[in-house]
Simulated scan of single mutants.
Amino acid sequence: MSKVKYYYDSETLSYRKIEKRKGRTFKYAFMFLLASALFGFVSFFLVSQYVKSPKERALVRELQHMQLQYELLNKKMDEAQSVLANVEERDNAIYRVYFEANPIPEEQRKAGFGGINRYKDLEGFDNSKLIIQTSRRMDVLQKQIIVQSRSLDEIAILAENKEKFLACIPAIQPVNTEDLTRMASGYGYRTDPFTKVRKFHFGMDFTAPRGTPIYAAGDGVVVRADNSASGYGNHIRIDHGYGYVSLYAHLYKYNVRANQRVKRGDLIGFVGSTGRSEAPHLHYEVFKDGDRINPINFYYGNLSPEEYGRLLEHAALENQSLD
Results as ranks from 00 to 15, higher is better:
V197D: 05
Y244I: 02
F200G: 02
Y248W: 04
R198L: 14
D219W: 07
Y242W: 14
V221H: 01
T212Q: 03
R210Y: 06
G203C: 08
M204K: 01
L251E: 11
R182M: 14
P209G: 05
A225D: 11
F206W: 00
P213R: 11
A208V: 05
D239P: 06
R237C: 02
Y215G: 02
G233T: 07
F200D: 02
K196P: 03
Y189H: 12
R224Q: 15
H250D: 00
R257F: 07
G218W: 06
Y252S: 15
Y189L: 13
I238K: 06
H240W: 12
E178R: 15
P209H: 06
G233W: 05
S228C: 01
Y254F: 15
A216N: 08
F206C: 00
Y189T: 15
G231R: 12
R224V: 12
I236R: 10
Y189R: 13
R182D: 14
D192A: 05
D205H: 09
R257W: 05
G188S: 08
Q260C: 02
M204D: 04
T207G: 14
N234M: 10
F202T: 11
Q260E: 15
A258V: 11
Y187L: 03
I236Q: 08
A225Y: 10
R224Y: 13
Y189E: 14
A208I: 06
H201Y: 07
D205P: 07
D239C: 04
R182G: 08
T177Q: 12
R190F: 12
L247D: 04
Y252P: 00
T191Q: 14
A217F: 05
D219H: 13
A184R: 02
H201L: 04
S185W: 05
K199Q: 13
N176W: 06
N255C: 03
R237L: 09
I236D: 07
P209E: 11
R237F: 06
P193I: 10
N255G: 04
P193F: 07
T212N: 04
H235T: 02
K253I: 00
G211R: 11
P193R: 08
T181I: 15
L180T: 12
V197K: 14
T191L: 15
R198W: 12
G220L: 09
T195A: 12
S228M: 11
K253Q: 09
A184Q: 09
V197N: 09
K199F: 00
Y187S: 03
D239Q: 09
G231D: 10
L251Y: 01
H250M: 00
Y248V: 06
F200T: 01
L180P: 13
G186Q: 10
V245M: 10
D192F: 06
A229D: 11
E178M: 12
T195M: 05
R198Y: 12
A225W: 08
V223Y: 01
T207V: 05
V245C: 04
G188I: 08
Y244H: 02
Y254N: 05
P193G: 09
G186S: 11
P193V: 11
D179Q: 11
G188K: 08
S230M: 11
F202I: 01
A184L: 02
Y242F: 15
M183V: 15
D239I: 01
G211C: 10
R237I: 12
D205K: 10
I238P: 05
T181E: 13
A249E: 03
G220W: 08
G243T: 09
F200K: 04
D205F: 07
G186P: 12
V223R: 13
H240N: 13
A249V: 02
F206Q: 00
F202W: 04
Y242P: 06
A258L: 00
S230K: 15
A249H: 02
H235C: 09
